[in-house]
Nucleic acid binder design. Structure first.
Lengths: 343, 343
DNA sequence: TTGAAAGCGCTACCAT
DNA sequence: ATGGTAGCGCTTTCAA
């Protein structure tokens, strides 16, 4: 079991007959240390496999080089893409990433944030849960002078930068495409009414209809509570069985579109000929569906990357001019078969 | 900007006219402290929102309550499920989870492990990359007495517990099911020959054929290099166009099965009537494919949970009797339409 | 039941 | 160019 104890600066100093401060300075190549001392110390350190005790360094410097990241769900294509981008940006800059998930529960989010704060992360990346309305647990970071970046789902109560998908434009472009394909009665299965993404996508949808003078009906805009496949199925059924059925459905997310497609297949409606279906997010399932699903790519990786870079910038400078801006990452329309009526 | 400085034990002691040690003991409810002192200190702490400086605590106790987790890819259904389980287990026990991804590159894995070690994680959870053969960067943890648990992809060179899918049984059951459905010429698109999962699944496949006295051909066992959809397509084509084409294909993973299904659809072969297709992993795409794909559920969440619990147990006890065991999480056959010829 | 003080490993200030 | 030393916030041993 002979566990090797790591050697410390003190050991190096003693062995080399120099002082601890000299050893420290040599290792960190401070100015005012002779070349030979630097070489001697660094050689010794390498030879004996010296690894600085980062806890002690953190303690002394009162920072941890650690970023906390709080997301609703890890098992989710979009969020895992964001995490991947954040991981790469953090690693590149020498930061570490601590991750927590909240399962969309306000209480778990509060716990996670408190744990992050108590654990002395240098800054926070967070996408709030659907349940969250009180954001004081996040405000605490700002009160302590620790930068926070919100991404994806955010609260306007917090004066922080926000890195988000261009939901309005994404939705607008998606619906415009449906219109160009000749669909005229376009429904939208929307999300929760108090979540900003849903609000923005709804606004983009509405504007596209207005732009092209198409009819609008409140009944054509059901709201999901859970954003599930089952809701997609149920709302598609409800829409198609109504007195004034739409000829296209724009869904708040690919999973909802999957449910809608399942209903359409079961009820023998032809997609895209009779009904057009559009998703949002570009999950792998959108490629796999039959017919393949047109959707909107959100570039999760870019969002994670950008949010993390922004956080690190603010960690490294004292310029807080970043505060409260919105950075929108451009989405891309992915045209597949579920909306391709022409050519 | 008035950043609130956090209050320290010293502040509490000074304000309350007691010593720092008494304050510490009262907060941690050590024996031999009067009820009233405990109450006084804890009330004061709560009132002034005292949060212990965890860096100092860590420093003092020489542990971080942090677990390092290294995976090949975060954007991957199976791995994100594992992460989710690990996150939940860690959180429950008061540990934090630091995550790194290696992109299946040995060099990035080495960097990630060194960063974890330098960052003083208490223990390591790792699934090695396909490229990894030298494992000295992981051995270093063991040399320092830090527990390591391997999961999913592992190396036998490391004497650590391994939490893995029951690949042999999973593959065996999957092929047995194909045989029971009446398929007689069963091919297997396998993975890398030096990766244990592939080896075990191949062994399960072979044994099932032997059990039922079915023919075996080396040409029926192509090996993927990247485990991609494209390879699935290519190998399915190669198999079906060969002189002795199989009537069923067992694929190393769902993504490969997707590629195979794409080829079969394009070449107008009926699944499951003419050709049976079986995947492995139970990704969301397997449900979505037309026809839906039979596959093997790997219970990633359970693997992450179990691996983390195991690590924490070993962190909290000195009983190292866990060493070098293999814990196999039972997989489950998911029968869908791609193999359902009867009934 | 409480206090005083050492010390974890390192950095940085003040000397020389 | 180098050494001595204080001190970060906390826990823990020893003493009272």
């Amino acid at each position: 079991m002979s566990e090797k104890r790591r050697i410390t600066l003190k050991d190096i100093a003693r062995e080399l007959g120099i002082s601890v401060s000299t050893a420290s300075r040599a290792l960190n190549e401070y100015p005012g240390i002779s070349e030979e001392t630097i070489k001697m110390v660094q050689d010794f350190a390498k030879k004996h496999n010296y690894v600085p005790n980062s806890i002690a360094v953190n303690f002394r410097k009162n920072k941890t080089m650690t970023i906390g990241m709080v997301v609703p769900e890890v098992v989710h294509y979009y969020f895992s893409s964001i995490i991947s981008g954040a991981l790469d940006a953090a690693t590149k800059k020498g930061y570490r990433l601590l991750i927590s998930q909240t399962e969309e529960k306000a209480e778990l989010e509060m716990h996670a944030c408190h744990a992050m704060l108590a654990g002395n992360v240098d800054g926070l990346l967070i996408s709030i849960s659907n349940e969250t309305s009180d954001v004081s647990h996040i405000q605490e970071f700002l009160d302590e002078g620790k930068p926070v970046i919100q991404f994806d789902k955010y609260s306007d109560k917090l004066k922080t930068p926000k890195v988000i998908t261009d939901d309005y434009q994404g939705a607008h472009g998606a619906v415009k495409h449906l219109i160009e394909q000749g669909y005229k009665k376009i429904a939208h299965i929307n999300g929760l009414e108090n979540v900003q993404n849903s609000v923005d996508r709804l606004a983009g949808y509405r504007q596209a209809l207005i732009d092209h003078h198409l009819e609008q009906h409140p009944e054509w805009i059901p709201h999901c509570q859970q954003i599930t496949e089952e809701e997609g199925y149920r709302f598609a059924k409800q829409l198609l069985e109504s007195k004034n059925p739409p000829d296209a459905i724009f869904c708040i997310t690919d999973l909802v579109a999957l449910g809608a497609m399942n209903y359409l297949r079961e009820s023998n409606r032809k997609v895209p000929e009779e009904i057009g279906v559009m998703g949002f997010s570009n999950w792998k399932i959108s490629e796999v569906m039959q017919p393949s699903l047109s959707t909107v790519e959100q570039h999760g990786y870019q969002i994670g990357l950008r949010a993390t870079e922004l956080l690190i910038e603010s960690l490294q400078s004292n310029d807080k001019s970043l505060r409260d801006q919105k950075i929108e990452i451009q989405s891309d329309l992915m045209i597949r078969n579920s909306t391709l009526r022409k050519g």
